[in-house]
Simulated assay, not measured.
Amino acid sequence: MSLIDHLDHLVLTTVDPAASEHFYVDVLGMQLEAFGEGRKAFRFGNQKINLHVRGKEFEPKAHLPVPGALDLCFIAAVPLEQVIARLKEKQWPIIEGPVMRTGATQKIRSVYVRDPDLNLIEISELA
């Protein structure tokens, strides 16, 4: 029996908060959330990505918080063709895909991009 039900948030460390905000809010359509003392997060569904700026991380933090170390997979709220069209409209390069992959619950169809910190971002639809 698992003690864990779902993911609430994760923390992304960035060197350029404005570039991260552009990608996650303007390109991917997440909602910008301000909280605490000047902190920011990107909200989507019932989850969010909290933003840390390298060298100014909020405590406690990961042992080695570094930009570009994440490999994330998001399930899209729209068909993958709409995701691809949005990425093209925003001139954000797709580095691979669409390709078939194995997701947490079933097969998924995915495209891969890199965010401004070079994290690998997989955007998928259930197949």
Results as ranks from 00 to 15, higher is better:
105 T>G: 05
104 A>R: 05
73 C>T: 15
116 P>Q: 04
69 A>L: 12
78 V>A: 11
81 E>T: 14
113 V>W: 11
74 F>W: 09
94 I>M: 12
108 I>F: 02
87 L>R: 13
102 T>L: 05
83 V>W: 10
106 Q>S: 06
87 L>E: 09
96 E>S: 05
110 S>T: 15
103 G>Q: 03
90 K>V: 07
83 V>F: 09
112 Y>L: 05
80 L>S: 08
86 R>N: 07
85 A>H: 06
66 V>D: 14
73 C>N: 09
112 Y>I: 05
77 A>V: 08
81 E>G: 01
90 K>Q: 15
115 D>C: 08
79 P>N: 02
77 A>K: 09
110 S>F: 00
96 E>R: 07
85 A>M: 01
111 V>Q: 13
111 V>E: 14
88 K>C: 05
114 R>Y: 14
77 A>D: 15
91 Q>I: 07
93 P>H: 02
97 G>M: 10
107 K>R: 09
82 Q>Y: 00
73 C>Q: 09
70 L>P: 09
112 Y>N: 08
101 R>Q: 08
116 P>L: 02
87 L>D: 12
92 W>P: 03
78 V>I: 15
98 P>C: 04
103 G>P: 03
106 Q>V: 01
100 M>P: 00
113 V>Q: 08
94 I>A: 06
84 I>N: 04
112 Y>S: 05
95 I>V: 13
80 L>I: 07
93 P>A: 08
108 I>W: 01
96 E>A: 11
91 Q>G: 02
105 T>D: 09
92 W>L: 06
66 V>Q: 15
108 I>Y: 02
70 L>G: 08
114 R>Q: 15
106 Q>K: 03
108 I>R: 03
91 Q>A: 15
81 E>Y: 03
66 V>M: 14
112 Y>E: 07
92 W>N: 02
110 S>L: 01
82 Q>R: 11
92 W>T: 15
81 E>R: 11
92 W>E: 14
117 D>V: 06
83 V>R: 10
95 I>H: 07
115 D>I: 10
92 W>H: 13
80 L>E: 11
72 L>H: 01
75 I>R: 11
103 G>I: 02
95 I>W: 02
90 K>G: 08
85 A>V: 04
84 I>E: 08
77 A>N: 13
93 P>I: 04
95 I>F: 05
115 D>F: 09
109 R>P: 04
114 R>S: 12
